[in-house]
């Protein structure tokens, strides 16, 4: 099966800045793929190479097997893009803007009109159909960008920071909508710097930093690499740190904090039962146990900072 997106050693320079510094990524068809990275990592540049707004300086990029330059028309026809910045026609009411976009993709006028109404309803701004984009509220503008991306019924939906600066309601609406689309078969590429979003939605994430891919993994795999914290509260606080043999090798630290035992370890969830059994056998009566998983955010910060501090990114 051909990948939705396949890039090999993709490069883009702006003068001295290497916005993309050899990006090789495969986004499988039907996946929900996250592109994570701090500001300036190159996420938008990556997307813009796919749709033809940025000209690559090296490497290959193909969408469903169509090279983004040689077969630009086929490649672009597969993609629906909700960009980070507002770039909407200001001369026409939003319904007409949608009809035009559909027309550019070869959808005949009657069908374009039907689809425009459909997607406006889908994102919940049908009531505003005769308004121009400038007069929409911030949240509605975001909704409109999604509608415009959906009007062509794309095989690959690309969302560049779709929830930046939107309220909780809209964020959840959006999550539901794109989850449904993905379940119906649409491949989704989502860039975000909200880690929680990626954690919730994505099957697979790539972490980008300074134009390079630092890691590609599932959110769970990534979190397994982070350290979890297990906090045990005893009926009678021990005076010294009990011996802990469980989870040998996974444990990173064992401390007493205000009478509670604090263990940090990789894959803490797996270690917890052994730890409890061991402490119980040692005669400690446990009244409370808390396992707090590392957040993807922490893993992410560790990975991207690590890159910077070693200076390995340039």
């Amino acid at each position: 099966m051909v990948a939705a997106i396949e890039t090999r050693d993709l490069r883009k320079r702006y003068g001295d800045v290497r916005a993309l510094d050899g990006v090789s990524l495969t986004v499988p068809e039907g996946s929900f793929f996250g592109l994570l990275g701090p500001n300036g990592a190159g996420k938008t540049t990556f997307i813009n190479v796919l749709v033809g707004l940025v000209e690559r300086t090296g490497g290959d990029a193909a969408v469903f097997g169509h090279d983004v330059e040689r077969d630009y028309r086929q490649a672009r026809d597969c993609i629906g893009l909700a960009p980070q910045e507002f770039n909407v026609d200001r001369f026409f009411p939003i319904r007409e803007v949608l009809e035009h976009k559909a027309g550019y993709h070869g959808i005949p006028a009657d069908e374009a009109r039907e689809r425009a109404d459909e997607v406006l309803k889908q994102v919940g701004i049908y009531g505003k159909r005769d308004t121009r984009f400038d007069w929409l509220s911030g949240g509605m503008k975001r909704r409109f960008l999604l509608a415009r991306a959906l009007i062509t019924d794309p095989d690959l939906l690309v969302l560049d920071e779709p929830t930046a600066g939107v309220d909780v309601q809209l964020r959840h609406d959006l999550w539901d909508l794109i989850t449904d689309l993905n379940e119906a078969g649409t491949t989704i590429l989502l860039t975000t710097h909200y880690i929680e979003e990626a954690e919730r939605l994505c099957d697979e994430v790539a972490i980008l930093d300074s134009g390079r891919v630092v890691e590609v993994a599932s959110p769970d795999e990534l979190m397994d690499r982070g350290t979890d914290t297990i906090t045990v509260t005893f009926r009678d606080p021990p005076s010294s740190v009990p011996d802990v043999a469980a989870g040998n090798g996974h444990v990173e630290s064992v401390d007493l904090d205000d009478g509670r035992l604090v263990v940090t370890a990789r894959q803490g969830g797996l270690l917890a039962p052994d730890l409890v059994r061991e402490l119980d056998r040692g005669g400690h009566e446990i009244v409370d146990l808390d396992v707090s998983r590392t957040s993807l955010e922490e893993v992410f910060v560790e990975m991207t900072n690590g890159q910077e501090s070693t200076g390995g990114s340039r």
């Binding site: 028309r73 770039n87 909407v88 026609d89 200001r90 803007v97 976009k101 550019y104 070869g106």
Partner: peptide, 15 residues
């Protein structure tokens, strides 16, 4: 269209 970047609507299409 360039100034407000909405020319992208046509540029990113299969025209």
């Amino acid at each position: 269209g360039r100034w407000n970047e909405y020319i992208d609507e046509a540029l990113t299409s299969p025209l």
